[in-house]
Design a protein around this nucleic acid. Sequence first.
DNA 1: TTGTACGCGTTATCAG
DNA 2: CTGATAACGCGTACAA
Lengths: 323, 323
Amino acid sequence: MATIKQVAQHAGVSVATVSRVLNDKGYVHEDTRKSVLKAIEELQYNPNSVARSLFKKSSNTIGLLIPDITNPFFPQLVRAVEDVMYPKGYTTILFNSDENIQHELDYLKGMTSKYIDGVIVVSNTLKWEHLERLTTPVIALDRHIDDRIASVTIDNYESSLKALEFLVERGCKRIAHLAGPSHVFTSNERLRAYKDFTRKNGLEEIIQEGSYELQSGMLNTMQLLTKYQHIDAIFAGNDVMAIGALKAAAKLGIDVPKELSVMGFDGVEWGTAVTPELTTMQQPIYQIGKKAAEMLLKRLENPGLAPEHVRLNAELTVRQSTK
Amino acid sequence: MATIKQVAQHAGVSVATVSRVLNDKGYVHEDTRKSVLKAIEELQYNPNSVARSLFKKSSNTIGLLIPDITNPFFPQLVRAVEDVMYPKGYTTILFNSDENIQHELDYLKGMTSKYIDGVIVVSNTLKWEHLERLTTPVIALDRHIDDRIASVTIDNYESSLKALEFLVERGCKRIAHLAGPSHVFTSNERLRAYKDFTRKNGLEEIIQEGSYELQSGMLNTMQLLTKYQHIDAIFAGNDVMAIGALKAAAKLGIDVPKELSVMGFDGVEWGTAVTPELTTMQQPIYQIGKKAAEMLLKRLENPGLAPEHVRLNAELTVRQSTK
DNA sequence: TTGTACGCGTTATCAG
DNA sequence: CTGATAACGCGTACAA
């Protein structure tokens, strides 16, 4: 609660001198330096971040805009971002948009007035025109928004193809797809891959659209399984739905993986909690967050940098839910 | 990026007047008011929060200090807090301490200099002496830190007793306890209840200490089950370990709930994802967060308030993992 | 090597 | 009803 002025007084110097020792800038005699340090100690002085921000027009804070921390995909991502930002002196502010564009815009607006230094966004609705006016660096996750906005993504299309190939390699012949919601970019990519794959391989196309939630995965699988009894594999749009599929199978007395193979997508921790453990196309979630944070850091230090676009690889993790 | 000064100039008035219309304070003629509004609109003026904070010594921001967002207990809690704070104009900053006292203290220190208006903490290490110096309201979650610090908790001891009673009602005779880490308050309370319960009912005391993690739950259950083959129920210190127990049972070919009942504690979402679904002593996680946020809000508006201590009830949720 | 004085963007007080 | 102006706490030219 002490101010720089009080420290100055206490040490018998001017505020400028205190500021100098605080920031190791300019010359300051070793003796006065010591007495200042002593005063700081005695008064338990702590520099005021707000005043500093006002002057610097920077708050050492970044924003992390995600749909919903309650979605098991995000906790790890958030951790990764914080793990790299905090040691560098940055505080990260989390924001749940619920995919609501109005919330997103509100937040973006607030950022500017808080001198927030940068943002990492994962959003299906934000476009270039919304981000354009920001003077701070932006990193887009999960989805490439615009060439002018740096991004870190994975190839949902290619990865889905690989997952599907694995399924046929293991002898699956009738693969259904539990698609995610159609307003979600990644979900569409996975669906597109499924469609292309089945067409190219002359497989039957069986699609059921869900909502990326557990219940949805379960219910839709029940429908699928009762409607088409010959299905021998399910490729789910995400792990949570895949786990719902596992539950449905258990409920119907269908043996996984003997009678039915289930493939997830994402690699969330839940997948290891269930029995059988979920085979999945695993995104390097922590790596994605880490990479994004690192990119942001780089652009914070060097604002002129051209927008980088990195694409990480998802990796098939074979566990127990597939043949 | 426009400042109040520019708006004033643009509207041909003084900054004082602009400030008045901005904050609806004091008298201002309707005509000048309109022209100011127009200027604001034209310049897309947005008040600068940092400058405002500096003057007001308040940032409309609260801190939320938790061990680890990656622990499935916390996402819901965080959501609850944000859901109540945001509509009231507060931003919440999340902080993961990893139960590291040094991190916690660092963070607390940073708070003061950022004019953060209040904190919600869930910590096993923080004591009165650490919080004493804060001038902002503090709410403790999960654990009662001191009478002088408001808190919202549940009765871990009583609830554990109830869970245990349920198990014996269902005919379980040899109940083992998968205890949580001993440095965690809630974990000790649950353990204490187990000890008292077994003693009072003349039951054998079988305790295995774990770390609240999935692997730990599984490994420790394996040991337990191979070492004491007569166990017919496991009372786990938390849901995650309980799910680990489920996995262990599956691996050993032990039927849950026929041969073994498994009882969790917490009520995290994972519990509904597994098969069989987990019977658990369910904490009202969202409610806890909501209540804490509401209490904080109340104390923010009325700083003089005496510290309130509310205790919420955990509720037995019977699903499929118990007889 | 050190101190003075101004500016960062707001709000509030006090004249007018 | 409106306008100067002094804070808020800090960092940095510019002088000394």
